[in-house]
Each structure stands twice: as structure tokens, then as C-alpha cells.
Amino acid sequence: MGVIDKVAGWFGRARASEQPRLLQVQCANPKGLHRMAYAEWGDPDNPRVLVCVHGLTRVGRDFDFLAQRLSAHYRVVCPDVVGRGRSDWLPDAAGYGVPQYVGDMVTLIARLGVERVHWFGTSMGGLIGMALAALPDTPITRMVLNDVGPVVTAVSLRRIAEYVGKAPKFASLDEAERYIRVVSAPFGPLTDAQWRHLTVHSTRPRPDGGFEMGYDPDIGKPLAAMQFLGDIELWNLYDAIRCPTLCVRGAESDLITRDTLAQMAERGPKARTLEMPGVGHAPMFMDIAQTVPVEQFLLEDTVS
């Protein structure tokens, strides 16, 4: 039986658990404590854990499709990074950065009670993964970087800075969805149901009956304070990574270039590389065509 056949079998058994458990863990910041929420799929006693971490303005529920597909084989854990979704906001915007996020993820992994994890990181989630995977005695033993790498282009940072923390208020979910379809157009062609799923989980109701984006507007302050005079290079982190790594690039991405992708195959962990056609920043892994190659990579050390 091939890998895809086995994955299909696991997916069928995973149907018994269609909805995640919604949990939280207490983390520390320089000015106190905050709660980080996470969605957990699959057997809570499974020692094999896959941590899926979202992009800058997104939430853990972006991974529902991927998590359901893998939940019969993994305990899949999808946090809302602090300042997003159901998680608390930080008292000081200066804390919104990779060092705080890495600390929170170490706390989360300790809560899960496991020594080792696999990692799937989209954009910011990939940067967090790279920083954690580069540390001595890292808990990450296999990693997928989704449309991110050790060079982040200045043009993509300028594009993101144009909308982060500047979203309007919405009179209805329909209005919120129209906005999300515009700013998230690089996600590529999604179904109406998929756009609505992303909208429902990345917005929150307002007291006046309307809606707003479900993140602290201050997450954009550190980005706005940066001067994008050139690309950000993190090769020192990438070159320290030793775990098997797959880097997926949206073929139309403005955040990671083909040249960077090619260099990633030659340096550090010598990542396997893959391009997703018809997508920019970033592939959302909400359909089988996108998820199967990632499933094959993640499950290589679990099936024969």
C-alpha cells in the first residue's frame, strides 16, 4: 500500500473527530502573563505531535482541512499566536516579535508533554519555526516552511505593512469577507465556503453588532517602525537547521523568490523544494492537491 493510500485510510478514520478541542496555555511576557489559545485535533494521548503555526494576521483555524487529514496519525496542534484569534493581546506592542513567539511555543510544547514535534509554519509561523529549529536541542525534528525562507523581500513587507492594523470595521460578515478576499487575494482560487471559513475564524463580533478583524491592531506597529531599505536576511538561522525540511513556495509569491528557494536546497538543511502553481503568498492547504505532497513528506518516517 502506498503513502497516499495510507493517508486516505487515516483520513477516513479521522472523520470520527470533525471538530477540534479548543484549549489554552498560560505564557509569560516581560510585563506579566497571557493566555495562548490553540485548537487540538486527533488523539490527545498520541505522542506524535504536529504543530501548525499561521501567518501574521491569520489564526490557527486556517489549518482545519490539513489538521483533519492528518489527525488520525498526529495530535495536531494549531495555536493562535498571541495577539490573534482567541489568544490574549500583549500589554506592550514591542513584544510582538519572534523572540516572544518562540518562548510561547516552547511553553506550549511543554504543556503538550512531548519531547519532539513536527512543524508546519506559514509565513510568520515559518520564521518562528526556523528560529526554534536553529536552537541547540530543538524539539523540531521535521519541518515544513510554507512560502517563507531566510530571505524576506522588502517588497512583500511593504505590501503587508499597507494593511496590517488598518482594517476597517464591518457591518456584516459579508462585508468582512469582501475585504478579506481583497487583502488575501494572493491565497489563490478558493471556494466560497473556504473564504467564508477564513472570514468566520479571523474576525470577531463587535458590541454594535458588526465585526472587526480578530487581531490586535498593534501587531503592525513593529512592522511599521521598520525601514524597508532592503530584504531581511536570516541565513544564520537557516544554516543552523539540521532537521529534514520542505519549503513550499507559491509560484507567484512576492515574499520568497525562486533564487532563495534554489539556495535553500543547497544550504543548511538542504531543503526539498516545491512550487504551488496559481498561488502567491501563501498557499492555504485547503484542498487535497496542495496537501498530499506535504503529507508525504511529513509521514515519511512513519510509514514504509
Rank of each mutant, 00 (worst) to 15 (best):
P186K: 12
W235Q: 04
A131E: 14
M264E: 12
V200N: 00
R181Q: 15
I288Y: 11
R158K: 12
D5G: 07
T107M: 14
Y163I: 09
T191G: 11
C52I: 00
R158Q: 14
D104L: 03
D5R: 11
Q263W: 10
E300V: 03
E212F: 05
H201I: 01
A251Q: 11
K270P: 02
D147V: 04
G32Y: 13
G220L: 15
D231N: 14
L66D: 02
V303W: 15
P168V: 01
I232P: 00
G2A: 13
L261K: 00
V53K: 05
P293S: 09
T302D: 14
P91I: 09
G2C: 11
S156N: 15
M124A: 02
Y96I: 10
P207V: 04
R21W: 08
G214I: 00
R35V: 02
E300R: 13
R158M: 10
S156T: 01
G268Q: 07
G230V: 08
P47E: 15
S304E: 10
D5K: 08
F170M: 02
G250E: 02
Q263M: 13
P269S: 03
V155D: 15
A39C: 03
T302V: 11
R15M: 07
V152C: 06
L198K: 04
Q296C: 06
G121S: 03
V77E: 04
T138W: 09
G85I: 07
P30D: 10
S156F: 10
A94D: 15
P277V: 06
T260S: 07
D254W: 08
F120S: 00
L157A: 14
V82E: 11
A8K: 12
T191W: 12
L135M: 11
G55K: 03
D137R: 08
V151H: 01
K221E: 13
R84T: 08
A28E: 14
G280W: 05
D45Y: 07
P91F: 14
D92H: 15
P150T: 04
A72R: 09
L22N: 00
A282S: 14
T57F: 15
R48P: 01
V51Q: 09
N236S: 12
T257L: 03
L23Y: 05
A110N: 15
L22S: 07
M264K: 01
C243F: 05
R178I: 04
V248H: 02
E177P: 04
V59Y: 15
R48I: 03
A185L: 13
A93Q: 15
V294F: 06
A224Y: 11
L261G: 01
L145Y: 01
A39Q: 07
D239A: 11
N236Q: 12
M286Y: 04
R206P: 05
R21A: 12
D147W: 02
A176Q: 03
G103W: 07
